[in-house]
């Protein structure tokens, strides 16, 4: 602290200090909540033993993450990383398909009035169907297998991606397109070199919303239709009365969602750095 204060005049320590301040402020509320939760418990549990206190959750989590099982097959010792990767892998897989399908379709709808008239209404009719309602069909087609989860994630992430891409494509400055045509660009060059970069800010908005839905979708489908991953553990632990694991699992999901959003935002900041540069108007 004294270091930050003594160098307050230079740029970097001030930024560090500002960052530290923000981190402290952000942590204040969750730490207080956890502390109150801990206080509310007696004998390591609250609400008549229904919920464990944070210290118990923490202990169970550490065992789940780093423990090595000695006797028998305890599913809650040392399996955390594995479950995490199962879920994260499905999210990456399904999200990638949603991007690969959603961005081109969104661009086509935004670009062509004919395509918009032909495709957009169907998408708008299907969109209100919640991903949970797709579960029976998913299980009927893919069974209790990995791809059922991927299918659900793709559907969930597809809508926000396609809608935001469409909007971004429609909002492209008409004169940018005219300029490209004037310079001899064909339709393909206009789409890839002008419309796509111009729509990127909207596309990233769609990606962030879509990724949030992807995490919801993976947990839901693992709870019901797939026998591995954080969602499966969540439901399974509830059945055997391991509420400490349930809570540790929930925190893990939150953490993963938060981290993956951070990743998307970092990519967005990098890809759209041309928007943030300041003028050196002379």
């Amino acid at each position: 602290m004294s270091k930050a204060e003594s160098k307050a005049g230079t740029l970097v320590p001030v930024q560090l200090w500002e960052r530290l301040r923000k981190t402290v402020l952000a942590l204040l509320l969750p730490v207080t909540l956890v502390w109150l939760w801990q206080l509310a418990g007696t004998d390591g549990a609250i609400a008549g033993g229904a919920l464990p206190t944070p210290d118990r959750v923490w202990a169970a989590w550490m065992k789940w993450a780093f423990g090595t099982s000695t006797f028998g097959l305890n599913p809650y010792i040392g399996t955390w990383t594995q479950s995490l990767w199962f879920s994260a892998g499905r999210v990456v897989y399904g999200f990638a398909i949603a991007i690969a399908v959603g961005v081109p379709i969104g661009m086509i709808i935004g670009w062509s009035k004919l395509a918009s008239a032909m495709i957009d209404p169907t998408i708008q009719w299907l969109r209100p169907v919640p991903i949970t309602a797709w579960l029976p069909i998913s299980i009927a087609i893919f069974g209790i297998r990995d791809f059922g989860a991927v299918f659900l994630i793709t559907i969930g992430a597809f809508y926000p991606i396609v809608i935001n891409t469409t909007q971004g494509t429609r909002d492209v400055d008409k004169n940018w397109i005219r300029a490209a045509l004037m310079m001899g660009a064909g339709q393909r060059d206009v789409l890839t070199r002008v419309v796509l970069p111009a729509a990127l800010p909207s596309i990233f908005t769609g990606l962030r919303i879509g990724l949030g839905i992807a995490w919801t979708a993976v947990i839901v489908s693992e709870m019901v239709a797939v026998k591995s991953g954080l969602g499966y553990v969540l439901w399974d632990a509830y059945y055997v009365g391991r509420m400490d694991i349930v809570i540790a699992d929930m925190v893990s999901i939150g953490l993963m969602g938060f981290m993956s959003d951070l990743l998307i935002v970092s990519i967005e900041i990098w890809a759209l750095r041309w928007r943030r540069l300041q003028s050196f108007d002379a």
């Binding site: 400055d173 004169n175 940018w176 005219r178 300029a179 490209a180 045509l181 004037m182 310079m183 001899g184 070199r193 002008v194 970069p197």
Partner: peptide, 14 residues
Amino acid sequence: GPDRGVVFQEASLL
């Protein structure tokens, strides 16, 4: 087409 170079009011650079 490129035989007619257009200069726009707001430049309209990419």
